[in-house]
């Protein structure tokens, strides 16, 4: 099977309830880490900024990569987002920095940077994915690498839906954090994520069916 069913993580056999509890405590842990980092930034921006980069560069890169679809674009976007964050922090007073919820705030900056970049130059993967001409390559799931296939499939979603799905399921932001990050009501975001997931699921099921047909043919 070319599109693997990826085991659920962490602890594949966790019941739904356990996993909710697990995520809630994760959220709390993350929030207190964020608050501690914000406090350090408020005291000494230059001294603590490297820690912010260490803690958030990977996720800002992942968000950018999955929205833009291109590694070098994503690298520039993540860097740009971090530089903007530094410049903004340099103008904030200590009390304002202390109150920042860094995860959501940084995600906002990354999402805005990505939006500005796609406005300037269209993203290649999106065009590829939408290209109905090329026969096998046009099917994103035909790729051998399952992650690449999912990433390409993600690229077929309209930008707002894609951003919502990326923030929720690639980055793992809560809906409350997302609402703050993109400035939309939670309900809208839930609907966007739900619609996005449904599109991905349908594409996945269609690909599986095609594969079965090919195998039995």
């Amino acid at each position: 099977m070319r599109v693997e069913r990826l085991s659920r993580q962490p602890g594949g056999n966790a019941t739904g309830r356990d996993s909710v509890v697990f995520h809630r405590s994760m959220d709390e842990a993350r929030r207190s880490e964020d608050a501690a980092l914000a406090a350090r930034l408020a005291d000494d921006l230059d001294g603590a900024f490297e820690a912010l980069v260490g803690a958030h560069a990977d996720r800002l890169f992942s968000i950018s990569l999955r929205i833009l679809g291109d590694r070098s674009d994503a690298e520039e976007a993540a860097q740009d987002a971090l530089v903007r964050a530094y410049r903004a922090l340099a103008t904030y007073d200590a009390a304002r920095i202390r109150e920042l919820r860094l995860r959501g705030w940084l995600a906002t900056i990354a999402v805005n940077v990505c939006r500005n970049r796609t406005r300037v130059h269209r993203v290649k993967t999106t065009e590829l994915a939408f290209d109905p001409g090329a026969e096998p390559a046009a099917d994103p799931l035909a790729s051998r690498d399952s992650r690449a296939a999912w990433a390409a499939l993600l690229g077929t979603l309209p930008p707002a839906q894609r951003t919502a799905v990326v923030l929720r399921h690639v980055d793992g932001l809560s809906y409350a954090e997302m609402a703050e990050a993109v400035g939309r009501p939670e309900g809208t975001l839930k609907a966007q994520v739900h619609r996005g997931l449904a599109v991905l699921r349908d594409a996945f099921i269609a690909a599986e069916r095609r594969e079965r047909e090919e195998m039995t043919a």
Binding site: F61, S62, R147, W150, V166, V170
Partner: peptide, 9 residues
């Protein structure tokens, strides 16, 4: 599947 799409910078 989406949860595996995070990637180190």
């Amino acid at each position: 599947a989406l949860a595996t799409l995070a990637e180190p910078a």
